[in-house]
Write a protein that binds this DNA or RNA. Structure first.
Lengths: 236, 236
DNA sequence: TAGTGGTCTAGACCACTCC
DNA sequence: GAGTGGTCTAGACCACTAA
């Protein structure tokens, strides 16, 4: 018998309200007693459901204030990389510039990644990342043009965290990303731009970004100088 | 005032018993009612403490059986990599061979990583990993020789998961690893061994392995063909 | 059948935030 | 002071495991 625990039902209720966009990042959700009454369960059960969602980082809580829907945490990106050399895993600020943006039809490969018709109009953006004025990464990103109309305007300044702008200006919440990391050898053009030699190693991060309802909105490839990036973790 | 919640005290009690080696991987810990009595708290508090440690994957539970100390989970290694090409993130078995092992004094760099005196005797091991008979990774590892006496014997077969042998044969539990991932270009020798060209990209994983009490026991560098490895994750 | 963990409830008291 | 989440307790009932 597939018996679903009550707290799972509560979790799913909240998950759906977030996934559907009824609750968006930063929103205050109803309090424990309120939810308990609404759903006809005890406060302890609501607490357990919320605890689980907090562990998943879908929600966060502040004593005395309430429970909020999380903003996506890019500190968990694989490019939460640490600069090499500078004493053991210290986070380093990467400044980003946006030298190029242009509307064009999406290449077949990209359309497929985003699950849209081949030839769909895309906004193509190229960015460069600097650590203390030295270029260390290059980023190419394709957005579904219809979702971010006006982002192609060169007068619109793009902040370091592009997603903040997309959420605020276009009302498209960024909910989730899938990332794949690998390495490749630099081609001539990339090498020139990053001041390294041809075939020097690059770390390559491919990212698909999703908004609510599981819709993909962006595909992005970031290439970073391998001598400037590494990734650390603990296993237990 | 720094008030420590009771369940934290319980967590720390269990953590200490594990860290000290009084409880080792696979052991059954006392039941909830037993711990509650021992420590003079309610069963709910014990349950909360254990839940937290389960979330950290330090423990795992089986309904009807009990609560156990986790074995280290190498599926969480960054080299829980997936082979490319073979349909989307399917795990692939990597067969390992051990062509070389030798006792020698540790290079200064390695001794420092392991926190031992320069010149300490080490067991140096070279291994190669194959996917369907194609060599895809090379591994160099340095062990503190005194801890694994006899491992240098060529007649002693080394299984794919070396750590299993170390735990069983030498009674040295593997408790934790720290990993750093980056990329580099293949040198001539590595390229030859992996059947790639000089300067082709490699993913490089550096790992320090620890036993109980925070003592480092191994330093390892694994180099894999970038075209055969990638790493995936989700961020939320 | 006895012992384990898993779910759920009800209620007490505390600490923090805001008005 | 009213409302929020955080901690802690006590106890009921269920599901799974082992003998």
């Amino acid at each position: 018998m597939a018996v679903t625990p009550l707290y799972k039902t509560v979790e799913n209720h909240l998950r759906e309200r977030i996934e559907s966009g009824a609750l968006v990042a930063g929103d205050l959700i109803p309090s424990e007693p309120r939810l308990a009454k609404q759903l006809g369960v005890s406060q302890g059960t609501v607490k357990k459901a919320i605890e689980n969602l907090v562990n998943e980082r879908l929600l966060y809580r502040h004593q005395g204030k309430g429970t909020y829907v999380s903003r996506i945490d890019f500190d968990n990106s694989l490019f939460r990389f640490f600069s090499y050399g500078s004493g053991e895993g210290e986070a380093v600020r990467i400044r980003k510039e946006t030298p190029m943006r242009r509307i064009k039809r999406g290449p077949k490969r990209i359309c497929k990644k985003l699950g849209v018709e081949p030839g769909t109009e895309m906004l193509y953006i190229e960015r460069a990342g600097y650590i203390e004025d030295a270029p260390v990464l290059l980023e190419q990103s394709w957005w579904i043009a219809g979702l971010v109309e006006g982002l192609e305007d060169e007068d619109l300044h793009i902040p370091d965290l592009l997603y903040a702008l997309v959420e605020e200006r276009f009302g498209v919440p960024v909910v989730r990303c899938a990332e794949t990391l690998t390495a490749e050898a630099a081609d001539a053009q990339t090498a020139r731009q990053l001041f390294i030699r041809d075939n020097d190693p690059l770390l390559v991060l491919m990212r698909t970004t999703y908004t609510s309802g599981g819709r993909a909105i962006e595909y992005r490839v970031t290439r970073g100088r391998a001598d400037r990036f590494s990734y650390r973790t603990e296993i237990r």
